[in-house]
Simulated scan of single mutants.
Amino acid sequence: MDPIPAGHALALWAALHILLLLGLSLLVVRQRRRHAVALGDGGVPELACAIRAFGNATEYIPMGLVGLAALTLAGAPPLAVHPAGLVLFGGRLAHAIGLSRSGEASPLRAGGVAATWGAYIYLAVALLFYALP
């Protein structure tokens, strides 16, 4: 018997978010090489967008994963962990794609923010549910 039933769900979403961060990091490196910019964005809009897409993901993903881990440790079943992981991942991916394409507002960016905030709200409510007797 798995001591933490939702542990595999947490592992799945942590792995996918780590891969997303790695992919976004590689996009920054590619833009740096393409434009020969070692530090900062060099005034290159494409590099600035790649840097912000990675930076924004690093601002939101860690707390989302903390929420998923806390939910798992609180004894939530996998079916409570998966929706939050899926919506958080989908939101972060959509936001990253939208921001990587342009620094302007876009439906992907807006949808990504909405999904991320939705996952955060879901996690907060679920954590309160499991925290209160």
Rank of each mutant, 00 (worst) to 15 (best):
G64Y: 01
H17T: 04
I51N: 06
L65E: 06
T72Q: 02
A74Y: 01
A9E: 04
A69W: 06
L108G: 07
V37R: 07
L47Q: 02
H95V: 01
A11F: 01
I4Q: 09
R52G: 05
A53C: 10
L39R: 15
R33E: 15
P45L: 11
A110Q: 14
Y60S: 14
L68Q: 14
R32K: 02
A115L: 12
L65F: 10
H82G: 08
A50F: 05
V29N: 07
A115N: 01
A94K: 09
L10V: 00
G75K: 06
A70I: 04
A110C: 12
L39D: 15
L108H: 07
S106G: 10
A94Q: 10
R101D: 00
P83F: 02
A14D: 10
Q31I: 02
R92S: 00
L12W: 11
A96L: 01
A6N: 04
I51Q: 12
Q31A: 15
S100N: 03
F54K: 12
L26G: 09
V66L: 14
A36Y: 12
M63S: 13
D41G: 10
V113L: 13
L10C: 01
L26T: 09
G42H: 12
L22I: 08
L22T: 04
I97T: 04
A14L: 14
L93H: 09
S25F: 07
G85W: 00
A115H: 03
E59R: 08
R32Q: 02
R101S: 00
H35F: 11
H17E: 03
P78A: 11
A48Q: 15
H8Y: 11
E104N: 04
L16H: 07
A6H: 07
M1V: 14
L22W: 11
L20T: 02
G23H: 08
F54Y: 12
S106C: 08
R32C: 00
L16N: 03
T72W: 03
A38I: 07
A38T: 13
I51W: 08
G42D: 11
L21I: 13
E46N: 09
L88H: 05
L86D: 04
G85F: 01
A9S: 12
V28G: 06
A115E: 02
E59I: 07
A105V: 13
A53T: 05
V81Q: 08
Y60A: 14
L79W: 15
G43N: 08
A50H: 07
H95R: 08
N56W: 05
A94F: 12
G103E: 04
G42V: 10
S102Y: 05
L22M: 05
V28R: 07
A38Q: 13
L22D: 00
I4K: 04
L73R: 11
M1G: 14
L16P: 00
A15E: 11
D41F: 09
G91N: 05
P3Q: 13
E104K: 10
S100P: 00
P45Q: 14
L86F: 12
P83L: 02
P83R: 05
L39W: 15
I18N: 02
P5T: 06
I61N: 02
M63D: 10
G103V: 03
A6L: 06
R32P: 01
A96P: 04
G112A: 02
V29E: 06
N56P: 01
G7Q: 08
V66E: 03
G111P: 04
L86M: 12
G111A: 08
A105C: 10
A114S: 10
A48I: 05
V37I: 13
G42K: 09
A84W: 03
A115W: 06
R101K: 03
